[in-house]
Design a protein around this nucleic acid. Sequence first.
DNA 1: CGGATGTTTGAAAATAGTCAACCGAGGTGG
DNA 2: CCACCTCGGTTGACTATTTTCAAACATCCG
Lengths: 251, 251
Amino acid sequence: MNRRPPHSPISTPCVQCPIRRMSGFRDFKPKELAFIRSWKVAERRVPARGFVLQEQETIDELYTVLDGWAMKHKTLPDGRRQIINFAMPGDLLGLQASVDKAASHNIEALTDLTLCVLPRKGLWELFRGFAGLSYDITWLAAREEHILGEYLVALGQRTAQERIAFVLLDLFLRARRAALVTGNRMSMPVTQNHLADTAGLSLVHTNKSLQKLRAQGAFAWENSTFELLDLELLANLAHKTVEPAPPRPFL
Amino acid sequence: MNRRPPHSPISTPCVQCPIRRMSGFRDFKPKELAFIRSWKVAERRVPARGFVLQEQETIDELYTVLDGWAMKHKTLPDGRRQIINFAMPGDLLGLQASVDKAASHNIEALTDLTLCVLPRKGLWELFRGFAGLSYDITWLAAREEHILGEYLVALGQRTAQERIAFVLLDLFLRARRAALVTGNRMSMPVTQNHLADTAGLSLVHTNKSLQKLRAQGAFAWENSTFELLDLELLANLAHKTVEPAPPRPFL
DNA sequence: CGGATGTTTGAAAATAGTCAACCGAGGTGG
DNA sequence: CCACCTCGGTTGACTATTTTCAAACATCCG
């Protein structure tokens, strides 16, 4: 049940990693870069709607997203699905599954996805020899915790419209940090169904709330293209304050 | 605005740390234990309802809970409060705030609380010299992420009764691992208001849902004492499967 | 006794979910 | 070329859940 196509050869050498060149990501020291380069053994491509990882599965790899979007979600026995978080270029996938013995959630590609493959055992070498990178991993884990905490507040306390505004704004800001936004516009491979399962709302109610939000003119969203029209307004609708983000690490 | 009583002298030497002696926690190697012992500089006591840490605050300390319960929560500008998670003996507090520059949530004591104080800069020494402990930190961060993910599913997909059953069961199981349960009974310093703010429900609805749950006989809860009567039934009501937990690290 | 905290209740109002269609764009096969 | 899918988005009517408001009640404590 675990047939996967073989990994692709490396077509994106680390030294010219597109993510390193984005602003907002921290620089490596030469030794760190050399280690990461030796750690990266392959690339993996996952087609849209394909699974990077399924619940209960064990993996001996970590991934860094090089290109594309993915989502992490869990499904209850009766079919209800909750999207836990999205992943974009620069995000690390599979840490939880590597540290624990089994994945606690599915990771599914929203677009065709290119991943940088990092074998699990390199993690040990990293912890033994690279304190800075070890700290980075912790940083990434803490950031994930922080995001999930924000979403918990959204699901627990915000109204439907606020929740939807919150998710859209969060996705926009994260996409912008990953250099996916040009002139306040971005391609957003997310359906209203995804949005509903993220916000914990029914599809119908999501749609209706979305209409009301749209009418307020903070954003436009059609044909998988999202455009931010009024950041401050959207932030108000989401009851969220927007702070500038510090430079972040990646692997 | 940041007046704190001075830390207490160490009254609980690490070698006889009560947590180390609990089953379910991993053993240290002698060198690791020596490091942790040198890292621990003091104990801090926080009275019930006191704050360990407030949102936006910066700290240069991490804490391990030695005794008592705490909760992490965030408050929206208009007063709505969401409890993100609870903490019990053995749990690490303040990692997010140490790694980031400012705390993303409040940490408030539910009971009188005894904390083991670990200065932030020891974290660097840990990452430089103790791969096993570095891995442990990552493990703890991943565990936190895992718990928050579970709660996201609960808030997004579960009905009111399921949510409440879920929270109660989760608290019970975690308390049991922290050796707080004797004969299926435990002291639970949580009010219905806390439960409501954890489950994302109003107080009134929490109360009414709780009655219906109580009527099914899976647990008894009165006078701050919780007793589990039927694990399987409660797990079913929560739509949750209970798996045995592996030994866990702590600091 | 009087306050504070925590729990409980009933009734009305608001929010969100379900059901059942329909629309439009894109793709496929005859 | 067109019939026929599927998928994503949209709508209206109805039902169910959840919140809000307002008031009691119980216990503990100074």
